[in-house]
Every structure is written in structure tokens, then in C-alpha cells.
């Protein structure tokens, strides 16, 4: 309540100054990253993220190892207090190690993503405690097509899916500073792609709790994903799909009014992916700037 009162006084005292401060305008000190923030008209957020992940594909002497670094550039614009439009473009660097120790290094574009988020329920305009949003999006086949090696085919280790993949989901956020919780469930329904592969329908869910007593905070979360089988040339690929559950932990921090940092480590704790797919520890670092 004290925070709310201070923010209210600030708004009354200097509306223009308040508009320049995203936290003040939102009325809530919770640090949020792009995609889960409290929207207000014309809020524009830029983000840059770096992500590292490892994956193994195949069994025994046929196992491939992937080390991937993604650099993601994003922008989100709240067209109104209900609608937020965002775009994200990843640059991808991969190192694939083949069973015979051959190595392939690739650099190129990943699949761009366009999203629209609509706030379906907001309990109050300033400092909302409950936010329920719907999410609609598209993953676009902008990923660089990496030539497949004749002797070592790796269509499932491309930098993108090569298909238009619609996304739909819901996001619920609870803000009760210094605590906040986000829960999201989404489904991705890939369409036929350029590698004669149609990805399986994928269901994703996450729950994230953040404790942020000051301008820094800690977060823990659970991410899950269930993937259907891919279809290759119309036939089900028995080496695809499955389920995976991650535990994640990290920290968030704010520098000044408009700069947010987030670092997260995710560890796969349950893996039931087919075809010898094994995911490794993933690291994520993000910087978000309100402009």
C-alpha cells in the first residue's frame, strides 16, 4: 500500500515524469521481462537475450551433440492498454558434433516470432493484481536453411523449423509485491514445412515465482513441454516427440527506472523424449529497456 501511495503521489505531482518511468506508470515495482509485463498505452520495450542450450540426438555411436547459442532481439509495443504486439528475431550459432568427431559450425538466422497479447481481465488499471491475457502468435520460417550433409543428415538440428507455426495460449500473472507469479499454457500447431517435415503439435506450460524485495529479485520456475510426433514425408517419425520438464532458477535486477536484467539457469529434471533426444542445461540472459 505504501508503494501504491507513493506512486499515486508521483503521478499527481508530475504526470509527465511519471509517464517517463515505466514502473511509476504501471504502479507496481515488480520487475518484468517482455511478454509478461503490465501493458499501458504506447509502452515500448526492447529486449536482447542470449541463450545457450545443449542437446544430444541419437543413441550410442550415432549420437549427435548440439551446442547452440541464440542471440534474440525483440521489441514489444503496447498499442493500447489491452493489446501488446511483439516481434522477436533470433540469430543462431550452432556447433554440431557428429559421431565420428566431425564438427559443423553454423551461423544464421533463426525463426522470427510475431505475437499479439490481449489482456482479457485486469482487476484494476493502476497496479493490477491480476492479469489474464490471451496470446496469439506465429513462428515464421526465417531460419537459415543449413545444407544437409549427404552422409550425416540432421534435419532436426536446423536453426529453425522451416514452417509457419501458429501459437495460442493464455497467461495469468499475479502481482503482490514483493511476490509475483506467472503461469502460462500455450499450444503450437506447426504447419507443413520446407524439409518435408511437419512438426508435432506441442503443448507448453510454465509457472514462475518471483520474490523481489528491492531492485533485485530471485525467481524459480517449472517449465514443461509435451511434443507430438513429427511427420516426415507424411509418415510418423517414431524418433520424435515426447515430454520434458525443467526446473529453473535465476535473478532479476533493475538499473535505473527502465533497464531490466534477468539471468536464468534451467535444468531438465524429467526427460522422456524419443529418438535419443536429451536436452542439457540451458542458460539465459536478457536485457530489457523501456523506451
Amino acid at each position: 500500500m505504501r508503494t501504491l501511495a507513493i506512486v499515486g503521489l508521483l503521478l499527481l505531482a508530475d504526470a509527465s515524469a511519471a509517464e517517463a518511468c515505466s514502473t511509476c506508470t504501471v504502479g507496481d515495482p515488480t520487475i518484468t521481462v517482455v511478454g509478461v509485463g503490465q501493458p499501458y498505452r504506447n509502452r515500448v520495450r526492447l529486449s536482447a537475450g542470449a541463450r545457450q542450450r545443449r542437446e544430444r540426438v541419437g543413441l550410442g555411436t550415432e549420437r549427435l551433440e548440439l551446442l547452440e547459442h541464440r542471440f534474440e532481439l525483440g521489441v514489444a509495443w503496447a498499442a493500447t492498454e489491452r493489446w501488446v504486439l511483439s516481434a522477436m528475431l533470433p540469430l543462431v550459432q550452432q556447433r554440431v558434433r557428429y559421431p565420428n568427431l566431425a564438427e559443423e559450425r553454423r551461423f544464421g538466422l533463426g525463426d522470427a516470432e510475431l505475437r499479439a497479447r490481449v489482456v482479457l481481465y485486469r482487476d484494476r488499471t493502476l497496479a493490477p493484481r491480476h492479469l489474464l491475457s490471451g496470446i496469439l502468435g506465429l513462428e515464421l520460417p526465417t531460419g537459415t536453411r543449413v545444407p544437409e550433409r549427404d552422409d550425416q543428415v540432421t534435419y532436426d538440428l536446423q536453426t529453425g523449423s522451416g514452417s509457419v507455426d501458429p501459437i495460442a495460449g493464455v497467461l495469468y500473472s499475479r502481482f503482490a509485491a514483493p511476490h509475483s507469479v506467472h503461469a502460462m499454457a500455450a499450444v503450437v500447431v506447426p504447419t507443413p514445412g520446407r524439409y518435408d517435415v511437419r512438426g508435432g503439435t506441442s503443448g507448453r506450460a510454465l509457472v514462475r515465482y518471483q520474490w523481489q524485495p528491492r531492485s533485485v529479485g530471485l525467481e524459480v520456475g517449472v517449465d514443461g513441454r509435451i511434443d507430438g510426433m513429427d511427420r516426415v514425408d507424411g509418415a510418423l517419425d517414431a524418433d520424435s516427440g515426447g515430454a520434458i520438464l525443467w526446473l529453473s532458477a535465476g535473478g532479476v535486477a533493475r538499473a535505473g527506472d527502465d533497464l531490466v536484467f534477468r539471468v536464468v539457469v534451467s535444468v531438465p529434471v524429467v526427460q522422456s523424449l524419443r529418438g535419443g533426444h536429451r536436452e542439457g542445461v540451458a542458460l539465459l540472459g536478457t536485457v530489457v529497456l523501456d523506451v
Partner: peptide, 15 residues
């Protein structure tokens, strides 16, 4: 220019 750039480098392994 940056986003259009892509490259692939391959180092052979045991043969």
C-alpha cells in the same frame, strides 16, 4: 546485412 549473413564450416572427423 547481419541477419542475411549465414555460414557453415565443416571440419571432417575420423574417416
Amino acid at each position: 546485412g547481419v541477419v542475411a549473413l549465414h555460414c557453415v564450416a565443416y571440419e571432417p572427423g575420423i574417416e
